[in-house]
């Protein structure tokens, strides 16, 4: 029965081809440092899942953001767990992604033929930092408010166009409800959409080119 269902699906979806192309591949024998990429992917997925759950209760306005977070922490069943995972996951993701980059650098894996994989990886790292920066404001507490004030000031110190950047980021001269809604939109729509596309490219390249091997002394 199960075999029949599988065959029926395979005929239409090409499951066997996917299995052959992705799972049943020969790859070089590597060490544990090579798990950091998938660890980052896992953390990214966790951020996505917990983030979507948080968006059920979170309200991106200065009047309600703080209280909605308090409500998630105290009033929602397992809200503390979801928020806790999202909070700590962000830090861990930056850490794993960064060490992943150092591993790639150390083994020279950014060289031919994986140059584009490297470039998309750098984009992902910067994107993750952007997610961290925008997400930091959302709880609308003292820490996030003042860190974002200083952070946007730093962006505003760019010669010439600094003031324009500052006003675009803040939606005005000061941090306000507009800043919060902009950061919220960046955090849950714009960055994730871009990141998703880049992650898929990154993964496609990793599968297409195979994971790099550990170089020996004469290479």
């Amino acid at each position: 029965m199960a075999q029949n269902v599988y065959d029926w699906l395979d005929e239409r979806l090409g499951l066997q081809a996917i299995y052959d192309a992705i799972l049943d591949r020969e790859v070089p024998k590597v060490n544990w440092w090579f798990t950091l990429g998938s660890a980052s992917l896992f953390l990214g997925l966790m951020q996505g899942i917990t983030g979507i759950l948080l968006s059920v209760y979170y309200v991106p306005t200065p009047d309600h953001a703080y209280d909605s977070i308090t409500y998630i922490m105290t009033g929602v069943k397992f809200g503390w767990l979801i928020l806790g995972i999202h909070h700590w996951g962000a830090s861990l993701l930056i850490l794993t992604a960064f060490i992943h980059m150092l591993r790639v650098f150390f083994y020279g894996a950014y060289k031919y033929p994986r140059e584009v994989t490297w470039i998309t990886g750098v984009m992902l790292l910067i994107g993750a930092l952007g997610m961290g920066f925008t997400g930091y404001l959302l709880p609308w507490n003292q820490r996030s408010y003042w860190a974002t004030t200083v952070g946007t000031e730093i962006a505003g110190s760019v010669p010439g166009i600094g003031n324009i950047i500052l006003r675009i980021l803040r939606g005005g001269t000061d941090l306000s409800a507009l800043t919060l809604s902009r950061f919220f939109s960046l955090h849950i729509w714009i960055f994730p959409a871009i990141l998703l596309a880049v992650v898929l490219t990154h993964l496609y390249l990793v599968i297409r080119l195979g994971i790099s091997n550990i170089p020996d002394e004469d290479s």
Binding site: W80, L81, I85, W88, L95, F98, W140, N141, Q142, W146
Partner: peptide
């Protein structure tokens, strides 16, 4: 981490309190 360390409780944003020492997230 979520269960035993948790998320630090911070007071609500207070734009008038300029005495607050701003600190970015640790990776910045």
């Amino acid at each position: 981490l979520a269960a035993f360390v948790g998320v630090a409780v911070e007071p609500k944003a207070d734009p008038s309190d300029a005495s607050y020492v701003p600190r970015p997230e640790w990776y910045f």
